[in-house]
Design a protein around this nucleic acid. Sequence first.
RNA 1: GGGAUCUUAGCUCAGUUGGUUUAGAGCGCUGCCUUGACAGGGCAGAGGUCAUGGGUUCGAAUCCCUUAGAUCCCA
Length: 884
Amino acid sequence: MEIPTRYDSSVESKWYDYWIEKDYFHSVPDDREPYTIVIPPPNVTGKLHMGHMLNNTIQDILIRKARLEAKNACWVPGTDHASIATEAKVVRMLREKGIKKSEITREEFLKYAWEWKEEYGGIILQQLRKLGASCDWERTSFTMDEVRSEHVTKAFVDLYNKGKIYKGLRIINWDPDAKTVLSNEEVIYNDEPGHLYHVRYKIEGSDEYLTIATTRPETILGDTAVAVNPKDERYAHLEGKKVIVPMVNRVVPIVFDRYVDIEFGTGSLKITPAHDPNDYEIGLRHNLEVIDIFNEDGTMSEDAQFYIGKDRFEVRKLITKDLEAGGHLVKIEEYNHSVGRSERTNSVVEPRLSEQWYVHTEELAEPALKSVMEDVIEFFPKNQKNTYRHWLENIRPWTISRQLWWGHRIPAWYLVIDGETKTFVAENENDALKLAIKETGNSDLKLSDLRQDEDALDTWFSSWLWPISVFNGFFDKKEIDYYYPTTVLVTGWDIIFLWVARMIMAGYEWKNEKPFEHVYFTGMVRDKKRRKMSKSLGNSPDALKLIENYGADGVRFGMLSSSPAGGDLLFDDKLVEQGRNFSNKLWNAMRLVKGWEIDDKIETPVENRLAINWMKNRLNQVIEELDGLYEKYKLSEALMTLYKFIWNDFFSWHLEVIKPAYGQPIDRFTLNETIELFETTLTLLHPFMPFVTEEIWHYIKEREDGDDCVVSKYPKAESYDQALLDVVEKVKTIVTKVREVRNSKGLKPKDKLKLYAKKSDSLLELMDSVKISGIKEKILKQAFLSGLELVDSEEIDDTIPFMAANEKFMLESNIEIDIEAEIAKIEKEIIYQKGFVASINKKLSNQGFVNNAPEAVVNMERKKLADGEERIQILKESLKTLKK
RNA sequence: GGGAUCUUAGCUCAGUUGGUUUAGAGCGCUGCCUUGACAGGGCAGAGGUCAUGGGUUCGAAUCCCUUAGAUCCCA
């Protein structure tokens, strides 16, 4: 049957099913060296996007390479419950059904949430299969499944008992949309346009006013002081005075605090301790009253006295008018300032005073910082180390409680005795009760006397245990001892604090060991205009559509071919198209090779032996290069090295030399050797393009059961003959030059012409090299020549002279050549060469250079000089003959 | 405001501790080529005083400083 001329990527699903059926991706501990990756768990209700594709392609390349190297490759997949994001989605879904979260119980809500998770959860894991991800699906984990939840509880109780978790009253970042606290890392700051309002406060018992500047006039209602800098002479006379807060007419003190910036605004600052972290600190120092004027959804509370129940942004407009009407507003300036927004809901974060659970991260940070700084854990690229250090050296307590239901409920129970609340932290309510009985001495206490904390834990409190919990690390010694520490973590640098740093802390806290050897940071996927991919811009291609159109291999190629570690990937359809075309090229090369009939009567032509010999040496050189690139995680470069080797060296040069004339058979040796080269090449390419390589693997040769590309043997680099590689490069230069001469003179590329070469020692050496035969034949075949004759003459009628590889050639042709143009060209070339020679002469006549530079470098320069002079000599002779 | 990284061909990027012909690749561009594995193809070509100005050195894209610009992190 005819093989179609186009590769059809729809075979991909067939191969994925086949690999699964053969159980190639499953790992159990054995005697081999483990190679372990845990997936950065995507949100359970998420869909595959470009970022996932990049990230997971990289992991798959590494894990497949390890598998080919006969390591015990284990890639653990899973999903994250993503508490805020998922809860927000469920709330929205319920609202559409007409159900309000505030009107249902926690149990009812969780039931809906689990239903939602069962329906939409894990779609992304199915999509990863389309990409070719060779995960061990039997190990699929979820941060809220039973095993992972047990780890979370145990970790919380353990830290609490060690005194590393505590509850405290702080100014926190409040998300009024999600109605929960956020950690500092979940707040995104950006400069946004706003206004600076200048408002005057009357000084009590005086006609004087004090003008303050604020970006948030609505918080005036919660003011409990005005502050100025003690060094500010403008305000020195106000010591001991008080001001009257507009609207509410509250009399509050003027305090003197060094925090106030004399230069900024009017130099005096209104103080709202309940709604600004800095104000809160000042409030503590001066013992100020705290008035909370907001409800949890960002509307005004009773304590605000005005605008009760109205939204904070509406109030900002209203109060501006009222302040103006009351004669308090001095002026309004345009002003850009930094605004914090919730990473998940994008609502403007409200600083709020509240009681939350915290992890004492300072102690945990110490070993985590040390191991990265000392390269015990290696970062790729290295420059992320600075960012990491800066954060860990300035680490602040980690707020881990969230006012959410979807998540791990905090394992703390409260008992109120005589109006005083006692806290018991335990792995379950029965243990908590035992603790309570023990502490109170009251054996009549019942479970119903205890009340569990309503809050859930931050999602990251479960993900930081991921490298441990996916191996059931707190309970199963065999698994964790074998797979931990994992080999490499592949993730985006945007979660270096949220996730990477915390996993390292957890690793040292509970395993006293790093969680991974290496961290490979991927960049962001952007569009070609360098914009972030986002739904609102509509510039993010549909990942599955891309796979459908170009094949997973094509997409993988496109994602990888331009994405250095840590650098952003500027995504362009063109790249994916190039990947698809590459698949097609491989396919057609296979068709060519497969189409040849063997004839045992044919002796192997000498040029074929040379070609095979050259390919084998090149292959070893390439394997060596790849090893170095993999070691440095330069995967893009590794792919491009392979791409160029396969397309240029293997297909364009090698296949073209050995290709028999149309319809003619080939000798057995050449074909077998070529198939073997093809096979090795497929193994090398397999990690990047798993499907097309597997497909072709089964076409080029009959295969026994289990002889599959996915588990083939990755070749080891052997030594290669550099001299041979150099000789062939020279030959290629000569062939290329002949083609160029034909091209520029309008000669047909495939008309057989005769080539003459001026006899020289170097040329004789090249042609008659005893070790390597087939040089002449290769040149004849690839440059479409009828013959190659070495001559003593400088000048032959009806030829075009040219120079290649420092030798003089003459190509048969009876076309008229434009002598003037030829002369001009050669003269231009002579000028260039003279400049070249002069620059080297300058170097060599410099005693400093000759004395100080290494001998090899000086010799190299001498060689360059000799070559240059030789070229000038040849050019001058050509000029002489032309001018005759 | 503090800190980090970066600036090489039209675009995206390589360029190992300073020394391999006067800087490489892929894409794009230009010309030529079509019964023959592949137009999702073949062959060849043009394109860069390595952001700027200084310095160190026998020698700088590479090390140091100035200036300009870009990106990111922290506050």
